[in-house]
């Protein structure tokens, strides 16, 4: 399959990219790793008039620790995230989830920013950034803004990102006690259901929990009833089981496809919430 014709431009800087994007009048798209976009273009499901390649913008890629927070640049590849010693040490859920994406070749090109901007309902990283309470850093013609990840994902393939805005990266306070668990769709390796759970545990007691699900509905979102049930409880199997038992009960617009009915998906949200919480608690 072959995409339709388009113009190709390479951006030199973030501002250059923003200017070029604005000049396309909404018809252009950013290209980083291209591993969400190019397959759609080949099937002619996406036909942008021009592509602005941001993959070589200096400083847009990389993983840094700063003021107790971790920043991951938008064009950092899944492979770089997966292999990051810094993340493995400070926040192992992120490389764990990155390693669940696609396959090695895809992880070598696919980027964190691309995955978040594309917001496939079955993508892995959206759940992770929501669970970590990450901020998405965005730059547009009007300058910088930051959006909480949970507000960034709005609907099916729909995010809080203007047509001339760019994700520059994400920032979050790292924590070790977080886990990701996923039911693979056996053909695509996307998530039928994926759950990321982050626990703030002190003295064996969960101070607070953030749990987010992907694959189950239109977009990655928190599971507030699970979080509420965990807060203040001992970080043990009993609390986890009780919390996981209500996972997904409040989810709306549950996805239905060839691979999973609504009933099965809802049940799997519970199963993988439990597994993600168990992983988090074990860290």
């Amino acid at each position: 399959m072959i995409p339709v014709e388009f113009d190709y431009e390479r951006a030199e800087s973030l501002d250059d990219a923003i200017a070029r994007l604005a000049a396309t009048g909404g018809e252009g798209k950013l290209l980083a790793g291209g591993h969400s976009l190019v397959p759609l273009m080949k099937l002619r499901l996406s036909e942008p008039s021009s592509l602005i390649d941001i993959s070589r913008i200096a400083g847009l890629s990389g993983i840094r620790e700063k003021d107790g927070k971790v920043e991951i640049g938008a064009t950092t590849t899944h492979h770089e995230v997966q292999q990051s010693e810094l993340l493995r040490r400070l926040c192992p859920v992120v490389p764990e989830a990155a390693g669940e994406i696609g396959d090695p070749q895809i992880r070598h090109k696919g980027t964190l920013g691309g995955s978040l901007a594309h917001a496939d309902p079955s993508a892995d990283m959206p759940a992770v950034v929501v669970a970590l309470g990450a901020e998405v850093h965005i730059k547009g013609p009007g300058g910088w803004r930051a959006v909480a990840a949970e507000d960034f994902f709005q609907d099916l393939f729909t995010v809080d990102l203007g047509p001339d805005e760019i994700i520059a990266g994400v920032q979050f306070r790292p924590l070790r006690s977080a886990g990701y668990a996923k039911l693979h769709q056996r053909a695509s390796h996307y998530a039928i259901v994926g759950v990321a759970a982050a626990l703030d545990v002190e003295g064996g007691v969960v101070r607070s929990a953030r749990v987010a699900v992907t694959g189950a509905s239109t977009h990655a979102q928190r599971l507030p009833n699970v979080e509420e049930l965990l807060a203040g409880r001992p970080a043990n199997a009993e609390s986890i089981a009780a919390a996981a038992a209500v996972a997904g009960d409040t989810l709306e617009d549950v996805n239905v496809d060839l691979h999973a009915s609504e009933e099965y998906r809802r049940a799997m949200v519970k199963v993988f919430t439990r597994r993600a919480l168990e992983r988090a608690a074990a860290r």
């Binding site: 056996r186 053909a187 060839l258």
Partner: peptide, 23 residues
């Protein structure tokens, strides 16, 4: 375990790529 050409009632092949047809 994995494979199957699944059609909907309109005769459309739902497992029309390696994204949905599990090899």
């Amino acid at each position: 375990l994995l494979e199957g050409a699944v059609y909907d009632e309109d005769g459309q092949l739902l497992t029309g790529s390696f994204m949905d047809y599990a090899m």
